[in-house]
Amino acid sequence: MGDEGLPHGSWTFLTSHARVLLALARDPEVRLREVAETCVLTERTVQAIVADLEQGGYLTRVREGRRNHYRITPGAKFRHPAEAGRDIAGLLALFADDPHASHRKRHRP
């Protein structure tokens, strides 16, 4: 899975890492399977991205019962030199509300 089905070519403004981080910020208890569907990625790719984000200090994964809970690291900074010194919090705030959430139904045990 990738960016197939996107209008006007295959590039997007946000990376897969940004999309996954935003999905986890919106719903810290979301299943990675659901993140994969939302981000149009494979579950394996999402797992690798979450590992990258954890290793980079952007989030922590806490096991709560049978589920994972994801916590975004406050004050985490962008990695690229062009955005150096800026917190990712501004990006997360910009995309905090999911315009598709009202159209999506989730079943959680």
Rank of each mutant, 00 (worst) to 15 (best):
S102Q: 08
W11E: 11
D98S: 10
L6T: 06
L6F: 08
D97R: 13
G90D: 15
T12E: 14
L24H: 09
P74I: 13
N68V: 02
H107V: 01
E37P: 00
T38W: 13
S102L: 14
G57R: 07
A18D: 07
H69G: 00
D97A: 11
G90L: 12
K77I: 13
P7K: 13
S10I: 07
K105A: 15
H107R: 05
Y58S: 10
A93L: 05
V40E: 13
Q47Y: 04
V20N: 03
G9L: 11
G9I: 10
G5N: 11
A23K: 07
P74S: 15
E64W: 00
R86C: 04
T73K: 10
G75Q: 12
Q55H: 13
R104Q: 07
E37N: 06
A82R: 12
N68G: 01
R79V: 06
A23C: 14
M1G: 07
L22G: 03
R67Q: 12
I49C: 01
R106H: 02
L41F: 00
G85K: 07
V50F: 07
A84N: 12
H107C: 00
R106S: 01
H8T: 15
A25M: 05
L92A: 10
A82G: 01
R71L: 01
R71W: 01
P28N: 13
L6G: 03
H8C: 14
R26D: 10
H69P: 00
G75F: 11
T73S: 14
S16Q: 14
A101H: 12
L24R: 01
V30I: 08
Q55T: 09
A76P: 01
G85T: 04
E54L: 00
R66W: 11
H69N: 11
G2R: 04
F13G: 08
I88V: 12
P28V: 09
G85W: 03
F95E: 07
A36P: 00
A48C: 00
R66T: 06
D98Q: 07
R19W: 02
P28S: 15
P99I: 14
A96C: 11
L94M: 14
L21C: 04
T73E: 08
V46T: 06
H100L: 15
A18Y: 06
T12G: 12
A23Q: 13
A84C: 14
H69Y: 13
P74D: 13
G57W: 05
D97Q: 15
L53I: 08
L91V: 02
D87K: 04
G56F: 10
L14N: 01
R79H: 10
R26F: 03
K77H: 13
I49S: 00
G85F: 04
D97F: 08
D52M: 06
H107N: 06
L21I: 10
L94H: 13
V30Q: 08
D3S: 12
R71E: 12
S16H: 04
A93H: 08
T45Q: 07
L22A: 15
R108D: 09
H100R: 14
A96Q: 15
L53S: 03
L91R: 02
E43A: 02
A51I: 01
E64L: 10
R79C: 06
A25C: 09
L53D: 02
G9K: 07
E29M: 12
T60A: 08
